[in-house]
Every structure is written in C-alpha cells, then in structure tokens.
Amino acid sequence: MDWNLRTCARKGHVTYAPTEDTFREKLHTPTPVGPAWRCLRCGDFVIGEPHQTGPADRAPIVLRGRALRDALILRLLSLERFIKGILCLAAAYGVFHFRSHRDGVERAFNEDVPLLKPFMDKIGWKFEESGMIHTIRTVIEAESRTLLWVAAGLALYGTLQLIEGVGLWMLKRWGEYFAVVATSLGLPIEIYELTEKITFTRVGALVINIVAVLYILLSKRLFGLRGGKAAHEAERHEASFLEVEIAANEPTLPRGLRTVPRTPAGVR
C-alpha cells in the first residue's frame, strides 16, 4: 500500500509554488484543462492553483513515507493508551461507588455466589481456588480507606494514560517524552508481575511496551540520542526543502501526471 496516496485520498493533495523560477517551472506543467502542480506528498500532478506559494526552503513540512509510517505507529499506540485510560477511570469509578454500597455487595457475594458452586464442580472449576473469587473477596474485605486509595490510584493512572494518548495522537514532542517516561516507569511493575505468574498477556504487554519505548527514543531522537531535537528538527526541515528540490529535478511528465485524467475526483 502506498501510504502517501492513501493519505492524499483522505486529506487531499498538498501543492506548493516556489518563488524560485527553476523549481517553479519543474513543479508546474500546463495541461489542456489548465495548469497542474505537483503534490509534495504523493508526487502526483493536480490541476488547479497551488495551495501555497513562497521560497522553496519555506515549503510546508508534509508527512510522507517514513514520517507517515511513524505517525501511524504513534497513533496506534495512542489508541491503546486511550482504551487503557478509559478502562482505568471506569474501574476507579466502580471502586469508589462500591465503597458506599459495600454492605449490599458483600451480602450478595456471600449469599448468591456459593449457589454457583454445584455447577462449577460439574464443569471441573475449582471454585474456592479461583483467582477471580480470591480477588473479589480481598476487595470486599479491604478497609474503606484502602479502597479510596485504590480508586485514587486508578483515576490517576487512567488520567496519565489519556494525557499520553492525546500527546501521541497529536504527534507532539512532549507527548513522546511523556510516553517514554510513563511507560518506562511501568516496566518494573510488569516485570515483577511475571515473577509471580507468566501469562501470554503479561509477556505480550511487556514486549510491546519495551519495543514502544525503544522505537520512540530512537526514531524521535529523544534525550539527545542521535543528535537530539536539533537533528530531528533539521531532518524535518531539510526534508521539506528536499521534497521541492527533488521533485523539481525529476522529469516534467512523471507518473502522477498520467493519473489526472484517470482520477477526475482528485482535481483541485
């Protein structure tokens, strides 16, 4: 899949008219139905006036190629953070609400849950040894103040997950730092959980978080890695200029021009 073309299909093309005649002539071509300008993202020529104009080194920074892939990965991570954040906030509300209805829940648990024991025995489930039942019983027997702290902790963790998700979705640099720090702080807890019991879910979550931290650190040059922020910004601005320069030095009739009559809906 060509992510450049896919993105242009969803968001539209990005055309730019450099003020330098050399670049301007190469990025522009006449057609029987009007002038066409080359898209800085997908490389196709689009009929109509350019969206912007100015010096070549002031060309807009367009996510394309590797940058589009990075954006996709970060936004997939942000969706995972959003889901975790919402679940944690829902759990926090449930624990806090449980404090005011504790007696009724405890009575229902002690009276109704044992009625399931005969059925559980028939299907071979050791009811009294179930980890889920043990967890529920521990929560019910916990002190009210302990439950309040648990609810506060879940609410805080859920809020941090949502903040991290927003930063990653918006592709903000502070969001990348926030994600690396927050995820790294949780790694020791995930490793400790594996010492208690190894499950596919726990191993998968740990691997995903380690890969996510390393990927963001290296690809975004955080904490001074690979030249730090200066190298990262220079790379992005250089790419913006090179997109114009490279496109300007290619043949006047590239493949994109041939797509104009084939895709009239893309005409600007």
Rank of each mutant, 00 (worst) to 15 (best):
E20H: 03
E20K: 13
E20N: 08
D21A: 10
H28N: 11
T29H: 07
T29Q: 09
P30A: 14
P30G: 10
P30F: 07
T31E: 06
T31C: 00
V33K: 15
V33P: 01
G34P: 05
A36S: 12
A36G: 04
W37T: 00
R38L: 04
L40V: 01
R41C: 06
C42T: 03
C42Q: 08
C42A: 02
G43I: 13
D44Y: 14
D44I: 05
G48F: 01
E49C: 04
H51P: 00
G54A: 11
L63K: 11
A67L: 14
L68E: 09
L68M: 10
R69P: 00
D70H: 15
A71T: 02
L74A: 13
L76P: 01
L77S: 04
S78I: 07
L79P: 00
I83F: 13
I86M: 14
I86N: 08
L87W: 07
C88D: 11
L89K: 03
A90R: 10
A91Y: 06
G94W: 00
G94N: 03
H97F: 04
F98E: 12
R99W: 06
S100Q: 13
R102I: 08
D103K: 14
D103T: 14
D103Y: 12
G104T: 12
E111G: 05
E111F: 05
V113T: 13
K117P: 04
D121S: 14
K122Q: 14
I123A: 09
G124D: 13
F127P: 10
E128F: 02
S130G: 09
M132I: 09
H134N: 14
I136T: 05
R137W: 06
